[in-house]
Design a protein around this nucleic acid. Structure first.
Lengths: 144, 144
DNA sequence: AGGTATTGCGCAATCA
DNA sequence: ATGATTGCGCAATACC
């Protein structure tokens, strides 16, 4: 119970539409520690009461200020990250739509093309019929 | 370093439950706020100094166990979240590729179509020229 | 009632 | 030395 900066904070945070009121009790201690890094004070005995500047490096103005700044930066960073994710998701939807559009267009063009080709074939046949004397196969076509 | 629960953790997970202090800071402060809010354990004013089992409720096996499980769940959840983001990004790339493919196809079909149409027009003109007597405008076209 | 899953947040290490 | 990122644990919810 000796944490000076014991601030509690009620933050209303709405994520996906649902606004939740969350009481945040900043537990200034109890936080985990660097996972696997040698950052622990090698030789600093925890003797309270002597540090160059007015406090054991924690709860100093300097420290508190840095923390606050960092917390802000973190918040900002995370927000941007989330925004980016949403944008990406939106991009997916957009691309999907465009894809469908393109696919439809292809279908249309293909059909058009096939119609034209058929016309060509038909015409070719007509030409053949006109140019050539009636074969035995189909005399009625030219001479009804 | 006067942080009470200084767990050291190296990628694995295991620490001696040494958490102390910090305890019920929440209760006192939070209650004021809690007045307007649901949730929060309604009543206990947590008199410091005696709790039936081993300690307040922190550093109990129960607590530690729950924490660890939650930490695990959190890790898992975040991993999945990250994975999902990557998948989405990949989907974007995939869709972009497909988009280009479709666009190319459209270009091709369009060209084909325009060629065929031109052929048709040309042929139509030929037909007209053959069917109709040479106009004064362009006698050379049919009779070189 | 009991669990996991999500989420906001603060800390500390690291990057740039 | 400073903001941005990232891994991690905590606590409150959300969700079953």
């Amino acid at each position: 119970m000796s944490r000076p900066p014991q601030h509690f904070k009620v933050a209303s945070s709405e994520h996906n539409g649902v606004s939740v009121i969350q009481s945040q009790v900043a537990v200034t201690a109890a936080n985990a520690v660097a996972a696997a890094l040698p950052s622990s004070p090698g030789g600093k005995a925890a003797a309270p009461g002597k540090m160059k500047k007015s406090s054991g490096d924690k709860d100093s103005d300097e420290y508190r200020q840095r923390r606050e700044r960092n917390n802000l930066a973190v918040k900002k960073s995370r927000q941007r990250s989330k925004q980016k994710a949403m944008d990406t998701q939106q991009r997916v939807n957009q691309l999907k739509e465009e894809n469908e559009r393109l696919e439809a267009k292809i279908k249309l063009l293909s059909k058009e093309l096939s119609v034209l080709k058929d016309l060509f074939l038909e015409h070719a046949h007509n030409l053949a019929d006109n140019t050539q004397p009636p074969s035995a196969a189909n005399p009625a076509a030219d001479n009804p």
